[in-house]
Amino acid sequence: MWLVLIERLMRNRLAVIGGVLVIGLFIVAILAPFIAPYQPDYIDRYHILDPPSSKHLLGTDDIGRDVLSRMLYGSRVSLSVGFVAVGISTIIGIVFGAIAGYYGGIIDRIIMRFVDVMLSIPSFFLILSVIAFVGPSIWNIMIIIGLTSWMGVARLVRAEFLSLKSREFVLAARAIGASDLRIIFKHMLPNSLAPVIVNAVLGVASAVLLESALSFLGLGVQPPRPSWGNILKAGQANIEIAWWLSVFPGIAILITVLSYNLFGEGLRDALDPRIWERR
């Protein structure tokens, strides 16, 4: 099954590009301490707001730190926020979606109404309000993004469960007396994971975007810890004199989000039986 999936993915050029970039970003994040020319918080007092040069390839920021080094370390922040947030939202979404889809009836109605409520609040408002109460930090950001982005997963899992519920293997499991928990996690969940995985890959992209926006507003990852968003914040403050602060971190965000989106869409096509049965 895995071989088939990989073969299908390889046929999709854009998905391959996305996948290669995703792996490349991982390697960069892991190797950041070895490839960064400077420590991320090393201050070069004689080169403040220097344009890109051979000494500082992407220039320096408003207190003389090397932008390239900060961006390399920033990729660790972005990816860890993306993955932890998606992990949280996927787990919450699976639990709510599975309960709603499996039990149905009034439980289903209450959970789905809750999903509607969450979806109709501007999520950016919700996230900011919670941050106002708990304070901004990288951990809080991860948790809050996770807690406010599980609704899509819940809907997906619920829909899968509704269609799986009356399938023979589930009825058979119930007939031999398997418990609800066993049926949900052992039998139904593995059969409904495909869209959840696609959703998670795409979710990383939107979590990275959200984190950068929050850090840009000064309500996300707090300095001195580097993040692409808070470098851009310095870029806005110095927009008239230091274009490199605004341009490079944005390109990094764009490439990251784009590669996760391309890879996710490719995965969706590769996992979609309707596309492959026709051939």
């Binding site: 926006a213 851009l232 605004s246 944005g250 764009l254 490439i255 989106n261």
Partner: peptide
Amino acid sequence: GFAMPGFW
């Protein structure tokens, strides 16, 4: 366009 951060 999807990947472009609006603030950037």
